[in-house]
C-alpha cells in the first residue's frame, strides 16, 4: 500500500521534472522494488572503530573524545549544529586531517586491516570535477592507481551507468546541471568499489527535488554495493530517511546515538520518520536553549 503511493508520486515527478527522471526510474528497477530489507544485498563494507578520538585546531578543541563502532555495511548519519565537529570527524575518518589523539581502525576489532586508499572514498558538497576533462575521464580519476589499466574505460562506463549518466560520457562538466555534476562525483567515488564511503553534505547545494532524487540514488547504490556509508548532513529529515543510525554530535562529543528501525524503501514524511525527526530536532534545539 505504502509502496504504491510512493510510485504514484514518482510517476508524477517523472513527467514534470527531467532532473529527477533517471534516479526515480532506477527505483522502478525490479530488484530495487522486490527487496524490502534492512541490510544491503551483500556486505562488502568495512567495520570501523574509533577510540578516544580528539582533534583541535589551535586553541579550539573540535573533537573531545569520540568512541564509536560502526558495523560493516551500516548507513550512519551524523547530524549536529554547524561547528559541532561533524565534518572534522568525517575528514579524520577519510584521512584528510591528522589525528591528535585516539585511533581510527578499520576491520575487525583490534586487527587493523591493510586498507588500500581505493577502499575509502569521500564525496564533498562541491562536485570538484575537473572542468577540462570529459565526464567519463572525470569518473576514471576515481580509479586511483588502476587508472592506467585497460579496464579503466569499461569500469568508468559502468559506474556512469549506475548513476544514470551513461549518455553524458563525452560532455564537458560545465554543461551539466548541479544535480548531474553531483551524480558524476558519485560515480567517481563509486568506480573503485570503495568499502567505506564518506559523504560531507553531498546534497547541501542542490534544490529540494533534485535532493530527493539524489537521496534515492544514494540509497540504491548503498544497497547494491553494501559499502559502509557515513553521511554528514545538517538536514535531519535526510538523516532519518537514509540512515540505519543517526548520531547527534554536540560540542565535540556524541550526544545521542539513535537507531532508525523503519523498513526500506522508506516513505518520506511517514509518521514514524517524522516522529523521529521531531525528537532529534528537539534534542538539537534544547541544546541551543541551554547555552
Amino acid at each position: 500500500m505504502i509502496r504504491n503511493t510512493g510510485n504514484h508520486t514518482q510517476t508524477a515527478l517523472r513527467t514534470s521534472l527531467p532532473e529527477t527522471e533517471l534516479a526515480s526510474r532506477a527505483n522502478f528497477a525490479p530488484h530495487a522494488r522486490v527487496v524490502r530489507e534492512e541490510r544491503p544485498a551483500q556486505i562488502t563494507g568495512l567495520p570501523l572503530s574509533i577510540r578516544g578520538l580528539r582533534k583541535s585546531f589551535g586553541d579550539n578543541e573540535v573533537l573531545r573524545g569520540i568512541d564509536l563502532h560502526i558495523p560493516a555495511g551500516q548507513f550512519v548519519a551524523i547530524v549536529g549544529k554547524s561547528g559541532c565537529g561533524k565534518s572534522t570527524l568525517l575528514r579524520l575518518i577519510a584521512g584528510l586531517e591528522k589525528i591528535d589523539a585516539g585511533s581510527i581502525s578499520f576491520g575487525q576489532d583490534f586487527q587493523p586491516r591493510d586498507i588500500q586508499p581505493e577502499d575509502i572514498r569521500v564525496m564533498f558538497q562541491e562536485p570538484r570535477l575537473l572542468p577540462w576533462a570529459r565526464v567519463l575521464a572525470n569518473v576514471e580519476v576515481g580509479l586511483g592507481r588502476d587508472r592506467a589499466s585497460k579496464y579503466a574505460h569499461a569500469r568508468a562506463e559502468k559506474a556512469l551507468t549506475e548513476v544514470g549518466l551513461a549518455d553524458k560520457r563525452d560532455q564537458w562538466p560545465s554543461v551539466l546541471s548541479g544535480g548531474q555534476k553531483q551524480r558524476v562525483a558519485l560515480g567517481r567515488a563509486l568506480v573503485s568499489r570503495p568499502r567505506v564511503l564518506a559523504f560531507d553534505e553531498p546534497l547541501g547545494a542542490l534544490d529540494a527535488l533534485t535532493r530527493i532524487s539524489m537521496q534515492r540514488l544514494l540509497e540504491r547504490v548503498w544497497r547494491d554495493q553494501g559499502f559502509t556509508a557515513i553521511l554528514v548532513t545538517h538536514d535531519v529529515a535526510e538523516a532519518v530517511a537514509l540512515a540505519d543510525r543517526v548520531l547527534v554530535i554536540e560540542e565535540g562529543r556524541i550526544a545521542h546515538d539513535l537507531v532508525v528501525n523503519a523498513g526500506r524503501p522508506r516513505q518520506r514524511g511517514s509518521a514514524e520518520l517524522a516522529g523521529l525527526e521531531g525528537s532529534i530536532l528537539s534534542h538539537l534545539l534544547s541544546a541551543d536553549d541551554r547555552t
Binding site: 584528510l96 564533498f124 570538484r128 580519476v141 586511483g144
Partner: peptide, 19 residues
C-alpha cells in the same frame, strides 16, 4: 579543492601536475 581531490584519489605529483 581540486588539488585536494586529486590527492585523495591517489594522484602522484606528476599526475597532479599533468591532470
Amino acid at each position: 579543492q581540486l588539488i585536494e581531490m586529486g590527492r585523495i584519489y591517489g594522484m602522484t605529483d606528476g599526475e597532479l601536475f599533468r591532470r
